[in-house]
Design a protein around this nucleic acid. Structure first.
Length: 263
DNA sequence: ATGACACAGGTACTGTGA
């Protein structure tokens, strides 16, 4: 059995103690982090080394964004895509060796997309849709069993937000984003493991704003996802959101997801 | 009602998140 986790940590240096606690308590074999917010030379390699996560692939960037995949089972660096073609560090892919050998794990941080859901008025929104468009072209040619995880910054289903009607014009839940994400899903037949194990319309939010009003009212969204290739999905045995981390002191605004595979 | 918070960089305040 292999377990894989994903977590938008919102600064890995600020929250390295929480990462260590999570690794000690949940013991995933692989952890994919987004928004590490540092260049690779400032990544806290020592803490992961001590915890037994001796295999690491870091695609960092000064100040913003940045992703990293750490593991106690061997992997090799597989790919770093720049689906915006602007130099931002939003993806890293690894290939598992040994247990789970041959499986590709893609760790992605899809752009948030700014405030206004209109590419004419807001270039960032267009960049988000174009990022998904380039991912779709890429997905059409995938030939390996693949798990893609991360902060997708889209809550696709009505039950993935606290108020569907109120959020139809809010970036992360607009119809054009959902359609664009659906097109990406269909390009490879990705299986949404979150909804395979926690079927709609059950609540399973992964993100709550830092603004206290939204937190107190449980106004969350499901922005983080784990999707498996059709050939890999049948091996998934369990899936959970570790919601308690959102109640830790000085938490990330996202919580981790974990999937266990019979590999 | 779309406000409220939090991070890095750098040391006042901006860019970013979503």
């Amino acid at each position: 059995m292999i377990s894989v986790a994903t977590w938008n940590i919102n600064s890995v240096r600020l929250r390295i103690d929480q990462v260590e606690r999570f690794l000690a308590e949940q013991a995933p074999d692989v952890l994919c982090l987004q928004e590490i917010k540092c260049a690779e030379h400032l990544f806290p390699h020592e803490a992961f080394e001590r915890a037994g996560y001796i295999h690491r692939a870091v695609h960092g960037q000064k100040g913003y964004h940045g992703v990293a995949t750490v593991s106690r089972i061997p992997f090799r660096d597989f790919s770093k895509h720049d689906w915006q073609d602007n130099g931002e560090a939003r993806h890293i892919g690894v290939e598992l060796l040994g247990p789970g050998g041959g499986v590709i794990i893609e760790n992605v941080y899809i752009p948030a997309g700014g405030d206004i859901p209109d590419r004419e008025q807001n270039a960032k929104f267009g960049q988000k849709l174009d990022f998904l468009g380039r991912m779709t072209l890429w997905a059409e040619s995938i030939e390996r069993p693949t798990l893609i995880v991360g902060d997708f910054n889209v809550a696709p289903l009505e039950c993935d937000v606290y108020d569907h009607k109120a959020l139809l014009k809010v970036v992360s839940h607009t119809p054009i984003e959902v359609e664009t994400l659906d097109t990406f899903r269909d390009a490879h037949g990705w299986v949404d493991l979150g909804r395979q194990f926690i079927p709609a319309p059950e609540r399973n939010y992964s993100w709550w704003s830092y603004r206290s009003y939204w937190r107190q009212k449980d106004q969350g969204r499901r922005l983080d996802h784990m999707w498996a290739s059709p050939s890999l999905a049948p091996q998934a045995r369990a899936h959970r959101f570790v919601e308690e981390t959102r109640r830790w002191e000085k938490p990330s605004d996202h919580v981790p997801l974990i999937t266990e595979f019979a590999l």
